[in-house]
Design a protein around this nucleic acid. Structure first.
Lengths: 111, 111
DNA sequence: TCAGGTACTGACCTTTTTGTAAGTGTGGGG
DNA sequence: CCCCACACTTACAAAAAGGTCAGTACCTGA
């Protein structure tokens, strides 16, 4: 997040969900709350550092809720708030678009 | 665009529309084709370099069409392809979400 | 005593993205 | 003859994002 004012809602939304991982995390939490380790395993390729960093940001955005269980070994569960859920819903058509055009997108030459 | 394979459609879509400017450009072209200079004026804050860079990428993605008129001074018009238009449509709910929650988003503390 | 699982944290570095500023080519108008 | 509009292009620099890897604290069971 870098800006303070936006030209349009899309601008603002992309700012919130932008980056490499946030959409994936949102998606992973859509079905059910997950623990840190579970999330890590669910999202292939993400490092612990990025996962926490993104989760923390999304927490401050009010998109996810962090629930700590005082146990040993520790257990922390992440879940979507209503706000996060509404964003996920708004992202559905985009996800479908991506799904539908996946092959085209993958075929785009890079560099 | 960096990846070749995606976990889900959302992942792929965010890759296509990611970055600071693409969504804005898509949006600006939604109403009507625009010339380079018009786009530049329409999207406040964008530099010429970024504008062209993004336009070129979006052209290779097949999202926008570039039409050159051989005149002096030169005239180049950019418009959305059907593909670009379909992406724009898929982005509408996200734009509405951003619009609706704009104040919340702007109020999020940064750094 | 000691390794192991869990959820982080921090230092450091590389890559990617974005920005700034100046320069290019063309023909028409002053 | 010079300057302007327009659509770029290039070199360089700064900033943001992402990645690696080692280390912390806690209790538990072997």
């Amino acid at each position: 997040m870098k800006k303070r004012s936006y030209n349009c809602g899309l601008d603002a939304a992309v700012d919130v969900v932008g980056g490499k991982w946030k959409a994936l995390i949102l998606w992973a939490l859509h079905r059910e709350p997950l623990r840190f380790g579970e999330l890590k395993r669910a999202i292939s390729g993400i490092s612990e550092k990025m996962l926490i960093q993104q989760l923390r940001e999304m927490e401050t955005y009010g998109l996810v809720h962090r629930e700590v269980y005082h146990q040993v070994p520790p257990k922390v569960e992440y879940s979507l708030t209503e706000f996060g859920d509404s964003l996920n819903t708004a992202l559905l058509p985009l996800g479908e678009w991506g799904e539908k055009h996946m092959e085209t997108i993958e075929a785009i030459p890079r560099d």
